[in-house]
Write a protein that binds this DNA or RNA. Sequence first.
DNA 1: GAGAGTTGTCATACG
DNA 2: CCCGTATGACAACTC
Length: 590
Amino acid sequence: MMEIQLPPTQQNQQDIDLIDILWRQDVDLGARREVFDYSHRQKEYELEKKKKLEKERQEQLQKEKEKSLLARLQLDEETGEFVPIQPAQQFEPEPSPVPTEPAQNTSISEQESEALSFDECMQLLADTFPFVDDIKVENSPVFVAPRQTDSSILHPTMPDPNSMQDVEQVWQELLSIPELQCLNIQSENMADQTTTTSTAGTDNDNCSFFTSLVLMDKPVLGCSPQVPNTFENSYHTLVQPENLNQIGVSLLNTNVSQSCDSFCNIFYSSLLSPENENNIPPVNNANHSLTGPLDESPLKSIDIVDLSVCKGFEADCSTDMSEFPDSDSAMSIDASPNATSPVNSAKSSMYGDAPFGYSDSEMEDMDSNPGSVQKNYSICPTEFQGDAQYQTAPSLVPQKQTFNLQATRSPRKEVPASPGHNKAPFTKDKISSRIEARLTRDEQRAKALNIPFSVEKIINLPVDDFNEMMSKHQFNEAQLALIRDIRRRGKNKVAAQNCRKRKLESIVGLEHELNQLKDDKEKLLKEKREYDKNLRLIKQQLNSLYHDVFSMLCDEDGKPYSPSEYSLQQTSDGSVFLVPRVKKPEIRRE
DNA sequence: GAGAGTTGTCATACG
DNA sequence: CCCGTATGACAACTC
């Protein structure tokens, strides 16, 4: 299609005629008149421009999110990874976001003003965060405040596939925020509380915030049809602090959809809370409303877990580890775990501490006894926060069970993925743990013992260089044993590989040789057959020649010689004689 | 679930 | 004696 770009000022009658002519030419091809309409295309161009702007806004917002996320992280010097700042550091014990004022003090007008501020908030959100608007308006009726909804503020439009993708992306990012992931743990604690404080201990109770969030990813998904009603009914009353307090309780006793409902309630109540109401900068407020109220109690809950479970865990670890048998290696020693590198802190994980004093073979024991080790991991969600965190309560997070199954199926790969650093559940950690899972066992062991060389170096350096390198560092006996074992195993591994390669090559060579010999044999047999054939032919010819010659011979009487009585014989000099046949056997018999 | 192939490891022999 | 290498045997894992 031809491109005609004329500013309206120059669009004179001649141009319009030209457009008409062109349109008539192209109308057979299905072109519509609008194609040639400058204003129409101008509109399209503006629409595209708008879309672009929206996209840019989204990207900017994502960047801001990442920034705020990074601000909440600190660099783990040991691993070089970013881990969330400890809850104790990051989250000062601040008053609950839930207002403590009695509900009766809140007048209807105040509620309305709050509702208006909510609308303002929504307006600001809609302006700065259009796809959030989409989420709220299109996907979740929960977010439409039914009584105060102003259609001019919330524009319900048909879901755009692109915006839907953006929505999913946003939710995934939300889920990757450590604080939100902590919701999982919080919900577990809630579930624990449920089992201890209430009698409702069904599976439904195990629905977690995490689940809610995941469900929000879909038809906001998991929210039951009653959600809008629930929200509608409780929208005003939710603003009251006592109801906010009840949210937690309702969470404990609800099923998945109800939990989702509660999450929505909390989400919105956080928007409505006075704390958030005061500082309204749109984007920040949006972020804060997502992370703020959600990240406090969960992390407090984690602390409780830290204090209760992990201490026991550490004790368990120490006893368990000390019970591990000594190495199978002759070079291994029974150095005590106390003789460890100062690098290890008291909080380092079992894999960080325990291996000292245990050679690689013990590590293998651990590898091969996932039950003895991984069980311990699984009871400490905050200390060991690789993928195993989800093992803490499989029933709580059913969608993770497939992963757990896989993890138990190949414990070898999984155990090493337990770096033992104090990490928060964070997507990045998951990735890194998966990367670690690809490390060889020796690499994992070397890492666990803080050996400063790469396994590759340990194995491949020449003896002199290796000894020189070793002399530059001070190692305890466990480390020395491990390094020697790594070198021995590495060398042997390569040797075995070479051996197999040679064996295969030898087999291939022998097969090749065998085939060649078979070919040769075939060739020789063929040749022999040829020779035999020729020989037979020559014999026949010779025989006929003999008879011809013999028949031409006559005695003195002109009679032919009888072949039975005479034969022709040739001497070495080529002369031929007629020799009478001597019946030797008869003579001998006589 | 059985079976073949692959890989890592160990034990042992040898140079 | 130590070290590296070669190789058979075994176990774990994968397909």
